[in-house]
Amino acid sequence: MDLRQHIRGVPDFPKPGILFYDISTLLRHGPAWHEAVARMAEAIRPHAPTMLAGIESRGFLLAAPLALQLGLGFVMLRKRGKLPGATIGLDYALEYGTDRIEIQADAVRPGERVVILDDLLATGGTMAAGIELLRKAGAEVPAAAALIELTFLKGRERLDVPCEVLVSYDS
């Protein structure tokens, strides 16, 4: 099955000149969504994770069903102030300004093998920050994964772990 047929390109969203890759069309097509989760499970299984982490918010959509399929736990990397209890946070640079992601302080055990997931790998800034945050929390990060990669933005070059993707766009 060609998963590209189930990903809609929306021009000029969220601003003029941007082509947004909308996964809602994939999510609502049961057989395509099932295929995407199955393929991603096979791609990340060799990295021997003991836990999966999803980046807010669309990364949750991929990481949660994968964790269930693989019999693993799932942890959320969220924006500032969204998690209860003690948290560990990391500020990181965006193209214009900064952002912050956080994880609950007790979410991972030291040395736990956590594969991090998001729906899209673009410039790699958020994924790289997520990897750094997981390490700060004590996790080992053997790999990253994304449903879609925009290869022309070279985000993979910012990562120091292998990155599994299902669909790549070159422009």
Results as ranks from 00 to 15, higher is better:
residue 142 P to A: 03
residue 101 I to A: 06
residue 34 H to N: 15
residue 133 L to I: 09
residue 25 T to E: 14
residue 32 A to M: 05
residue 148 I to Q: 00
residue 135 R to F: 11
residue 162 P to E: 06
residue 42 E to F: 04
residue 44 I to L: 03
residue 152 F to W: 13
residue 130 G to S: 03
residue 96 Y to L: 11
residue 85 G to A: 06
residue 48 A to K: 15
residue 61 L to C: 11
residue 162 P to I: 02
residue 55 I to H: 08
residue 14 P to A: 07
residue 7 I to T: 01
residue 164 E to C: 15
residue 169 Y to R: 05
residue 134 L to S: 04
residue 33 W to C: 00
residue 159 L to Y: 01
residue 2 D to H: 02
residue 113 R to E: 13
residue 58 R to M: 08
residue 159 L to R: 00
residue 160 D to P: 00
residue 5 Q to R: 13
residue 12 D to C: 13
residue 75 V to Q: 07
residue 164 E to V: 15
residue 56 E to P: 01
residue 154 K to Y: 08
residue 139 A to Q: 07
residue 26 L to E: 10
residue 162 P to Y: 09
residue 126 T to D: 01
residue 62 L to M: 13
residue 97 G to K: 10
residue 14 P to T: 09
residue 148 I to Y: 02
residue 9 G to D: 15
residue 115 V to L: 01
residue 40 M to H: 10
residue 114 V to W: 12
residue 115 V to S: 02
residue 154 K to M: 09
residue 131 I to L: 13
residue 66 L to S: 02
residue 138 G to H: 04
residue 145 A to L: 01
residue 7 I to G: 00
residue 88 I to E: 11
residue 27 L to D: 09
residue 40 M to P: 07
residue 42 E to N: 14
residue 157 E to G: 03
residue 13 F to I: 02
residue 112 E to I: 10
residue 19 L to Y: 05
residue 105 A to V: 12
residue 58 R to P: 08
residue 151 T to E: 12
residue 50 T to S: 10
residue 40 M to I: 01
residue 41 A to P: 04
residue 121 L to R: 03
residue 163 C to D: 10
residue 55 I to F: 06
residue 152 F to G: 09
residue 75 V to P: 03
residue 15 K to W: 13
residue 65 P to R: 02
residue 22 D to Q: 00
residue 59 G to K: 06
residue 66 L to N: 04
residue 118 D to Q: 12
residue 121 L to G: 02
residue 110 P to D: 14
residue 81 G to Q: 01
residue 134 L to K: 03
residue 132 E to L: 15
residue 126 T to H: 03
residue 39 R to N: 09
residue 69 Q to E: 15
residue 7 I to D: 05
residue 11 P to E: 06
residue 134 L to D: 05
residue 30 G to K: 13
residue 133 L to V: 10
residue 87 T to F: 12
residue 153 L to D: 00
residue 36 A to Q: 02
residue 19 L to G: 05
residue 102 E to Q: 04
residue 43 A to L: 12
residue 105 A to W: 06
residue 37 V to K: 14
residue 90 L to Q: 14
residue 37 V to Q: 14
residue 20 F to V: 00
residue 85 G to Q: 03
residue 92 Y to V: 01
residue 77 L to T: 11
residue 3 L to G: 05
residue 19 L to I: 15
residue 37 V to P: 06
residue 46 P to V: 13
residue 120 L to H: 07
residue 112 E to R: 06
residue 56 E to R: 03
residue 111 G to Y: 13
residue 135 R to I: 14
residue 106 D to P: 03
residue 13 F to N: 12
residue 85 G to H: 04
residue 167 V to C: 08
residue 42 E to W: 07
residue 32 A to D: 01
residue 26 L to C: 05
residue 144 A to I: 12
residue 139 A to N: 06
residue 53 A to Q: 09
residue 78 R to H: 08
residue 93 A to I: 12
residue 135 R to N: 08
residue 169 Y to C: 07
residue 20 F to L: 00
residue 67 A to Q: 04
residue 29 H to Q: 14
residue 54 G to E: 10
residue 167 V to W: 07
residue 25 T to W: 08
